[in-house]
């Protein structure tokens, strides 16, 4: 059984003009120790998916359907108090901006010790020792001195290391990392990615890595899920999806990324931009921008079907090509 199973997840936002669907019928699973990348452009619903799994959807956002199961047990219908116990202990979270994830009024040590003792019963002295070990683990020099410092005394990269320690210190089996390196400089980004990968591997923790950056996915994830307009376009092993994408959207996305090497005359261009949630086209959401669209794409919505060693939601794979 997979560690996390998400089945037909729907995230909705009731508004005066009707209910908007930010995540629409998304299903995937994450195995023990696996890193799943979730990639998409802004508004694709990737962060919403992560927030739904960890139970941190901002009201009025709500789960409108489907199930989320951790170890076979449903966690999408837990009360806020029950969910709080799952969060931290079983699912850890890392967010984009390390400055807002840390409380500026407390030393990093106090925050670490509080988190450890909330989830793992142990005396304060032992928790402090554990906290120092964690700071060393995430590569912070002189951890026994740094533990009594405040977040503002750390640089951006060091702060994100503290956030990773905080997410991992209760030894969760699943980590949701939402754009963990976006606020960092490139040289620091590479360090944080390597750290995240190493800690996950060593602890056999699984992770959902939400990002807009295909490069980060390429270096980190085992499998990747590509989202578009709240729907899953494609999911599969990262090497195959990036190098031989099945879905025309993934293909366009990969072509539009500038690369190092001989420079092309033009980049591949996907015309237009992602639709707003208020006017998602009928049929396949990508059809107005798709170079391969056929008549059926305008009214038939494709289901996610097995393609190659993954799955894609595209009518081209449903035998309606002619």
């Amino acid at each position: 059984m997979a560690l996390l199973e998400v089945e037909n997840l729907k995230v909705e936002f009731p508004t005066r003009k009707g209910v908007l669907t930010a995540v629409d019928n998304v299903s995937f699973s994450v195995e023990q120790g696996e890193i799943l990348g979730v990639v998409g452009e802004s508004g694709a619903g990737k962060s919403m998916t992560g927030a739904a799994v960890i139970g941190l959807l901002e009201p009025p956002g709500r789960i409108g359907g489907g199930q989320i199961r951790l170890d076979g047990k449903r966690i999408d219908n837990l009360s806020p108090d029950e969910m709080r116990k799952v969060r931290g202990r079983h699912i850890g979270a890392i967010f984009q901006d390390p400055l807002t994830s840390l409380n500026p009024l407390f030393t990093v040590g106090k925050q670490l010790i509080e988190t450890i003792r909330t989830h793992l019963p142990m005396p304060a002295a032992e928790a402090r020792k554990r906290a120092i070990e964690w700071l060393a683990e995430v590569g912070i020099p002189a951890p026994d001195r740094r533990i009594d410092q405040y977040p503002h005394q750390f640089s951006g990269g060091m702060r994100q290391r503290v956030v990773i320690a905080l997410a991992l210190c209760a030894e969760p089996r699943l980590i949701i990392a939402d754009e963990p390196t976006t606020a960092l400089d490139v040289s620091v980004q590479a360090q944080i990615i390597a750290l995240l990968k190493r800690v996950c591997r060593e602890r056999n923790a699984a992770a959902i890595l939400v990002t807009h950056d295909m490069g980060v996915i390429a270096e980190t994830a085992d499998r990747v899920a590509v989202m578009y307009a709240g729907r899953l376009a494609e999911i599969g092993p990262v090497a195959r999806v990036l190098q031989k994408p099945s879905h025309p959207y993934t293909a366009g996305l990969m072509g539009s990324i500038p690369r190092i090497g001989p420079r092309p005359d033009r980049l591949v261009q996907i015309e237009g931009s992602m639709p707003r949630l208020t006017d998602i086209p009928k049929g396949c959401a990508f059809n107005p921008r798709c170079p391969k669209a056929i008549a059926e794409c305008h009214h038939l919505r494709p289901e996610l079907r097995p393609v190659a060693d993954g799955a894609a939601a595209c009518l081209l794979y449903e035998g309606v090509t002619q």
Partner: peptide, 17 residues
């Protein structure tokens, strides 16, 4: 630079900021 060709997945990044 993250490599989309995935040729250097496990290289050790430079440290420091």
């Amino acid at each position: 630079i993250p490599d989309l060709g995935m040729s250097k997945r496990d290289c050790v990044p430079a440290s420091g900021e």
